[in-house]
Structures are given as structure tokens and as C-alpha cells.
Design a protein around this nucleic acid. Structure first.
Lengths: 192, 192
DNA sequence: CGTCCGCTTGACTCAGATCAAACTTGGTGG
DNA sequence: CCACCAAGTTTGATCTGAGTCAAGCGGACG
């Protein structure tokens, strides 16, 4: 069971916010948990020395600020990068449900553990200097048994995910295709 | 309660391995869970197209491959980067304990959620191109209320964590100190 | 006492960032 | 149904700052 299914099973409300609007502010008391149905939301933290730091960019089909489950006030602010649809649910509704359903909690634990694993991988991949090798490593870690990566997001998003500018990413992709190490299709990339 | 305390409370065994030795191999059946007392261990995955990818470097005071709690076989191999001391415990000992102690499970969930949050932050920081700004962002996110970062690891390790070569890291640190934006002390760095 | 490793600094190089411009696509609203 | 706008994609020219290689110092540890 996924995090989305967990939230959906607890009859969430649906809300919409416009680009630039704020979902919550740093310091606010946490009452709700969110799941991004569509759009992008950035999490920004104002640090102790006054400078803001971008903590995370939340994409569609992702929960937002899961750690807020275990905290009383937000440690960052959420601002919509584009028009967004969200599912929202009371924080305590989930906590209560989990406490009464150890199996669901164990399931969520597995989801989080998997998240940690994936994030560490992408983190390590970002330490590879060469754009070429970085892209290949990303592909190697994310292709299915047919050696294909389904494009559920834009190439630009993937570029950002691996820590490259989209220009460099497009260029390297082209080089790799010309070198016959991969093949681009409208909805996927195949490693040869 | 930390992950370490959880493991320690279940009477783990202590083992030592030498540099270069393997703790487990990709494909092995998972029986044990590990916690690194000292040393470094790298996790390597042989991908479908034959090339190996470095997934993670585990440091002292960190659990190793937590996701293995929820899987039957290792998806990567573990090789000691230096001489290591480890605590080891049967996977099912932990799972059984968690199932009987929902409070401990909830606690672990919070630890994992926090992990996810921190990893996302470091991930986003690695997208900052300028070494200068990257270091400052890292500091801003990790300093305590005294605006100080305690050095529990080597500068070289921090350099790797933020995705810079140690040479560049040392140089920028020096520039920042000369520009009076931070102050270096033997055991910590203070932001001014 | 010797070795390893973290730390530091210098010189040089180049790969990826940046800036710029054009094309494509998809959606919106009149 | 079309005009228009926003955003993703693509390619080119240029440049700079982080990587690389190299060398030396000093402390820890066996």
C-alpha cells in the first residue's frame, strides 16, 4: 500500500491553490497533512541568519512534508510553484489510524525506508562529476527489466533531479543517442 | 529513542571486519541488520547492464541498509572502506520487537521521516552551483542556536557530503573565513 | 620510527553553466 | 475553431569556476 492509498482511504478533502499562494508558513501549528495530486510546491526555510534556503520541491503524486506527522509546527513554508490540486487530511486522523493499525504502520515504515534508500542513491549519483556518467548511472538505477525508463515527468524535471541544467541534460542525451548507448522514445528512454 | 538505542536494547553481537572485506553480497538472503560503530562501508550495486554504481557510503554511528528490514535479499553489496566495528542483530528480532511495541515502531517512523527530510535538503543543496553558496546553505541548515556546527566528522567527509572536492571545500572555507562570514575552530565552525 | 591520512596550497584546464534565441506543444478563452 | 500564451525542448556561442594533478606539512597510530 502506498502513502497515497493510505491518505485516500481516510476520506481526505480536496483543495486547490494558485501559483504563488502559500499552503502553510514556517512556525504555523501543524494540523493537516497534504498529498500533491497535481502541480509543484516548493518548501522554503528561513534560516537563523536570515537567508532563505530551498529545502525541497514537491512534485505530483508525492506527499508533502511527511515529517510534519511527527512535529507540532512547520519548520518551513510551502509555496505553490504552479497551480496545484491537493488532498488534505487532519494530521491526527492519520496518527490515530496508524496507532490502531500496526500493520499499516509497518507498511508505512517500509515505504519510508525505501524512500531513504532512493534518496541516498540519488545523492551519491550527484557526486559524479561527469554529466555523461551521471546520466548513465541514473538510468542504470531506474530502468526496468526491459532496460527502459518510463517518462512520468518532463526531461527538465529529471535534469533537475540529477543536478544538471536542462541544457546540459538535453545535449548529453543527444550525444548518448548518437553514440547508440540509448534510444529516445516519446514516452520512455531505452538503454542499449 | 534512536535507531542505535533500539538495536542496542536487543543485545546485538559485535563484529569486526578489515578494510576491503565484504559484509554481504548482492543477492544474499537477508538475515542480519547492522549498525556501524566505527569505520566506513560502501554499498555497491551491480546494475542490469553490468556496470557497478556506488549507492551509499555508510559512516560511523549510522545504521547500514535499513531498507533490508523489509526485503528478503540484498539489492547491493557492502564492502568495508576501512577497518570497521559493527553491531549486528537478527532481522526478525527487530521486526518481532516492533510488531509487539507499536510505540517503538511509531518512534522509528519518526526517525525515518526525519531522515527523508534531511536527505531531501542535502539533495537540494547539491543543486546549488556555486561552492560558496552551497557551503553557506549547508551551514545555515545545520548550525545550532549558537550558529555553530560541531565537527563530528572530518572536513573531507563534509566536503563529500555537500558534493565538493576536498580541495575546493578547503579553499572556499578559507575565503569565507577571510571574508569574516565564519570562524573556524578546532572542533567547530561558527557563522558570524 | 615509519606509514597513512587529513589538511593545505598552487597552477592549469576544461566541462558544464550561462545567456540567448527559436521551435514545438498543449491548454485556455474568446 | 483559432489566437494566444506558457512551458518544455533544442541548439549555439561564450566563459568561468570547480575539478584535477601535484607537492608538502603534520598528527595519529601501530
Amino acid at each position: 500500500m502506498s502513502f497515497e492509498q493510505l491518505i485516500s482511504s481516510l476520506s481526505p478533502k480536496k483543495i486547490k491553490i494558485k501559483k504563488g499562494e502559500s499552503l502553510f508558513q514556517q512556525g504555523d501549528t501543524i494540523e493537516n497533512l497534504y498529498f500533491i495530486v497535481s502541480g509543484k510546491i516548493k518548501l522554503i526555510r528561513d534560516t537563523i541568519d536570515g537567508n532563505p534556503v530551498l529545502l525541497h520541491m514537491g512534485h505530483e503524486s508525492e506527499p508533502l512534508a511527511e515529517a510534519s506527522l511527527f512535529s507540532d509546527s512547520y519548520h518551513c513554508s510551502a509555496i505553490a510553484e504552479s497551480a496545484c490540486e491537493l488532498k488534505t487530511i487532519k494530521r491526527h486522523t492519520i496518527l490515530d489510524f496508524l496507532e490502531e493499525n500496526p500493520a499499516a504502520m509497518m507498511n508505512l515504515l517500509a515505504i519510508f525506508a525505501r524512500q531513504v534508500r532512493d534518496l541516498r542513491t540519488i545523492n551519491e549519483i550527484k557526486n559524479i562529476r561527469s554529466a555523461n556518467e551521471r546520466i548513465l548511472s541514473y538510468l542504470r538505477c531506474n530502468i526496468d527489466i526491459n532496460k527502459e525508463l518510463m517518462l512520468t515527468q518532463t526531461l527538465k524535471d529529471i535534469a533537475h533531479r540529477v543536478g544538471l541544467t536542462h541544457e546540459t541534460f538535453y545535449r548529453e542525451l543527444k550525444k548518448l543517442e548518437e553514440a547508440k548507448v540509448l534510444q529516445r522514445m516519446p514516452d520512455r528512454i531505452k538503454l542499449l
